[in-house]
Design a protein around this nucleic acid. Structure first.
Length: 274
DNA sequence: GCGATCCTGGCC
DNA sequence: GGCCAGGATCGC
């Protein structure tokens, strides 16, 4: 469910956790804990203080002092809730982080496509998920050519599939991929190898604008997305093509169609996306 | 590279 | 009942 702008919004909504000390954990019997065990997570993190929150791609990292990190991915249906006072656990609560001041961070995920894992190195290279991630969408230490090189390393992918590939640019999901391609006026079916550098630059620029707008809107709430404090996003009001099969794009008369690529829906306007 | 698969729930 | 869903991985 949450893509980069949603995870960024969640991160911002959880800033109040910084400085708090982890007292204990709750894990459900089927918590999606990966590569480690709930016990190990508890042992690694208990009595540590949250020092900083970070987002990498769609992953949220809770860094602690002494150094360790809890690495969360929300998959399709994951949600984090920050509670000052406990409420009854809703169904599909898979983890709770209890802080020494009574604050509670709750991880809820009906489909369990999310993951809970650990990183101990600050660069995250010891985490199997983080080490696969490509560039951040707005990394100022990278040049446009670095981004183009990333795309070029997968010449046979379609542009849509390339955008969804977390090893190229991390954090892009179905909504923002469709929207960025529309903004760049590029056909989602076009192969990277048939796309000029200029067009790839245009795509990168469109992607950045789209994601920045998503963050400014605090995400897209189509069904049930909300940040850690229950705030919904507003980007759903500005989506140009996503979910608009059979209608026109939001601010034009161009017809939107839906196709399937890699088992995912893609919405686009063939008349203007070449 | 592509399709099937993991899982639950909402909607028609 | 069937289809669809903000995702990612694992086979062929």
């Amino acid at each position: 469910m949450p893509e980069l702008p949603e995870v960024e919004s969640i991160k911002r909504s959880l800033q109040g956790l910084v400085g708090k000390t982890i007292a204990r954990f709750y894990f459900s019997r089927v918590a999606p804990v990966e590569t480690t065990s709930p016990k190990q997570i508890e042992k690694t993190l208990h009595n540590k203080k949250i020092s900083r929150l970070e987002r990498r791609g769609k992953y949220l990292l809770l860094h602690t002092d002494p150094a360790a990190s809890l690495v969360l991915h929300l998959g399709m249906t994951g949600k984090l809730l920050l509670l000052e006072t406990p409420t009854p656990r809703e169904k599909h609560t898979h983890m709770e982080l209890l802080f020494s001041d009574g604050t509670l961070l709750r991880f809820i995920d009906p489909r369990r496509f999310g993951t809970i894992s650990l990183a101990c190195q600050s660069d995250g290279k010891d985490n199997p998920f983080l080490k696969k991630l490509g560039l951040e969408y707005n990394d100022s230490t990278q040049t446009r050519d670095d981004y183009i090189r990333q795309f070029r390393s997968h010449p046979k992918l379609s542009l849509k599939t390339a955008l969804l590939h977390q090893g190229i640019i991390a954090g892009v999901g179905n909504i923002y991929a469709c929207e960025a391609l529309y903004r760049a006026k590029l056909d989602p079916r076009r192969l990277v190898q048939k796309t000029t550098d200029e067009a790839l630059r245009k795509l990168l620029q469109a992607l950045r604008q789209t994601l920045d707008m998503g963050i400014a809107c605090q995400g897209t709430t189509l069904r049930d997305y909300q940040d850690g404090r229950g705030t919904k996003g507003s980007m759903q009001n500005f989506l140009q093509v996503y979910g608009r099969e059979g209608k026109t794009a939001l601010q034009s008369h161009h017809k939107v169609i839906r196709i399937i690529q890699n088992n995912r829906s893609t919405w686009f306007a063939p008349a203007v996306q070449k």
